[in-house]
Write a protein that binds this DNA or RNA. Structure first.
Lengths: 141, 141
DNA sequence: TATTGTTATACTCTATAACTATA
DNA sequence: TATAGTTATAGAGTATAACAATA
């Protein structure tokens, strides 16, 4: 079946292309914040979260998340407060400095991507716009 | 200028989509080989490489690469030999087992991507094929 | 007794600095 | 003296197991 082969090649090429973009964005786009911190800060944009929620969402262990949010607090990018209703639980919240640090990192990465788009035709940009939307939908499923 | 804003949004969306694909491929696609080992094994596919070449290409320090290739050798996925012409230099080569381990990991990751493509129309697949090719060209520059 | 989170401990990958061997 | 690579050591980030506090 030639369809199956073409699909597999598409899968391989698309995966490699996305991984290459991702890798280069991370290495060349910015060195401000490490990836695991960025990922947690992004989740905190929507509002405060409990450590175990974050650990589950980030697919890391609870001790690892303890350490990560400890680092964020130490840097002044998040604050950890006690839950008044349940003494076992805690709540991690983004600070203004954290929001600013995240914005800087994101802007740097976007700028790297923007430079990669230089020289493309309007048709090529349109193609990538549609592809980005489709990929985003696929990943949301 | 509305063009600049649209381009920035494209850059941000495309970056996020690629990073999301990359992240999920890595977490959900396979656990066989760690990313830094995969990356080195891929470079060895083209032929033997010197440790310092690999360190430069991977953007890691020479001691870090020493450790990585030491691990590859210990697992039987690469062999490290001396250069007969220059006693300072060494050469890292892929073994058949290394080639097989890499193929397995890649197949697992491609399969994950293939599942993500399920349910797409021929037009959508065609869109992603063109996008993958374009992204690949952009990253090669 | 179950749940939330932290501490204790260890492993991996990273780095810089110091060292060995060769040119 | 310069270069290729390794060893020494330390700093992150990860994990599991054991613990403390609370429900």
């Amino acid at each position: 079946m030639p369809h199956a082969e073409a699909n597999l090649r598409l899968a391989a090429d698309l995966r490699l292309a996305c991984q290459q973009v991702s890798r280069r964005v991370r290495f060349e786009g910015s060195q401000e914040l490490p990836p695991h911190q960025v990922s947690v800060l992004v989740k905190l944009l929507d509002g405060p979260r409990r450590p175990s929620e974050l650990a589950l969402a980030e697919r890391v262990s609870k001790p690892s998340m303890s350490r990560t949010i400890g680092g964020l607090e130490k840097c002044g990018w998040a604050v950890i407060s006690d839950d008044p209703d349940d003494g076992r639980q805690r709540l991690v919240s983004l600070t203004e400095q954290g929001r600013a640090a995240l914005a800087t990192t994101r802007a740097e990465r976007d700028h790297w991507m923007l430079r990669s788009l230089e020289g493309l035709t309007p048709e090529q940009r349109s193609l990538l716009r549609e592809a980005a939307e489709l990929l985003s939908q696929m990943m949301a499923r």
